[in-house]
Amino acid sequence: MPDSPLSSSPYDVLGVPSSATQEELRKAYRRMLREAHPDTGGTEALFIAVQHAWTVVGTPEARAAYDRGNVAHETPHTWAPQPPRAPKQPSRPQTRTYGHPGGYSRERYLSMMREWVGLGEPLRDPYDPALVRSAPHEIRHALADAVAEETTARALTTLGIGYTVWHDVDATGRTAAAAGRTEKVDHVVLGPTGLFAVQSEDWATPVSVRRGDLVPRGEASGFERQPLHELAGRARTLGRATGVRFTVAAVVLPDDDLEQPIIVVGRSRGVTLVAVQSSVLPHLLRTGVADSPRPDGTTLFEVRTRLQQSIRFV
């Protein structure tokens, strides 16, 4: 089962339709092995992907299991929201959090999925793997957004009592509102290292830095033209509405999609632009970014009060 709703299916990797015969699959696998091998101009990553695709659909039994939404020999996986867990007694005071991480993206996903399946048609399991894989990229990207935001939110709860986090914060400016478009900051994080606007992304492709922003190294559904500058702009819009100033705009990506744990890309009108691997985000928030201003105790209290009084959620 792929980790991301946007991950290529085994059929995509082998370059055949899902209706291909087993013999067509076998020929495609052999062809792709030759093309993907590093000694013949391919890459190690693609070569591994081709081999994995064959283990998933290479036999009629494994293929039937995959087409039903299961992958043999792998841990069952679901993109459905995780059920609430019984509260535990924390060993230390927890991060203060507000809002519903991933809620807006999940509602958007469910709405688009119902419309795509057909209004009035029963939608027994909107997270059925076979259904998700067959959906258009725009729908799968909405689900990928939700999963990425929820993953980040879980990491943010480990920061401790010195931090306050707001999820799914409305940052719609006048231009977006006039166009009927909602814009948001996935996570607003306030702590002793500064005020961070954090966006959780999963474009299912490696990302590089070029010309002061992020660019995909492959096809990427839903990719913003300048994701870091777009986020910095939303942070400024939110800052004007709440009377605060953001210090860092950070885009969080799956670890495998960013070549370095933390990349400081530059600045945009006083806001430091950063790309960070998902697993490293708590470290970045605890240590901060060099040369970015840090609030003293009084300023921290004032900023938290302003945000509490003025933040709106999408």
Rank of each mutant, 00 (worst) to 15 (best):
M113R: 10
E121N: 13
G102E: 01
T95G: 01
G69Y: 00
E115D: 03
G103M: 08
T97L: 10
Y104I: 14
F47D: 14
V117E: 12
W54C: 00
T97D: 08
Y98E: 07
L131V: 13
P126T: 06
A130N: 07
P84G: 00
A45D: 13
G120C: 10
E44N: 02
G102S: 04
A72Q: 14
H100G: 01
E107T: 13
E107V: 04
P60A: 10
Q89H: 10
L123E: 03
P126H: 09
G120R: 05
A45E: 11
R68P: 01
G118L: 12
G103W: 01
L46A: 03
L46R: 14
H77Y: 10
T97I: 07
R124G: 04
T55R: 03
T78S: 15
S91I: 00
G58Q: 06
I48V: 09
R68M: 13
S111M: 08
P60M: 04
G69A: 01
R96T: 10
V57Q: 12
E74D: 10
W54M: 10
M113V: 10
A62H: 13
R68A: 15
D67Q: 09
A130E: 15
G69P: 00
P83D: 07
Y127N: 11
S111K: 14
Y109V: 01
R92F: 12
A65N: 02
A72R: 15
P93S: 08
R124V: 13
V56T: 15
T43R: 07
P76V: 04
A65D: 15
A53S: 11
H73T: 12
A49I: 03
G69V: 05
P122Y: 03
M112G: 01
T43V: 05
R85H: 04
L131Q: 03
A53N: 11
W116N: 03
L123M: 15
P90A: 01
P122L: 01
V132L: 13
T97N: 12
V50E: 08
T78I: 02
A72M: 15
P76K: 05
S111R: 15
R85Q: 12
R124F: 12
T55S: 11
Y98H: 09
V57R: 10
R108C: 12
H52R: 15
E74P: 02
T75H: 11
A72K: 07
H52I: 06
N70M: 09
A64N: 08
H100T: 06
R124S: 13
E61H: 08
Y66V: 02
Q51W: 08
A80G: 11
H100I: 06
P83I: 04
I48L: 05
Y127Q: 11
A64K: 10
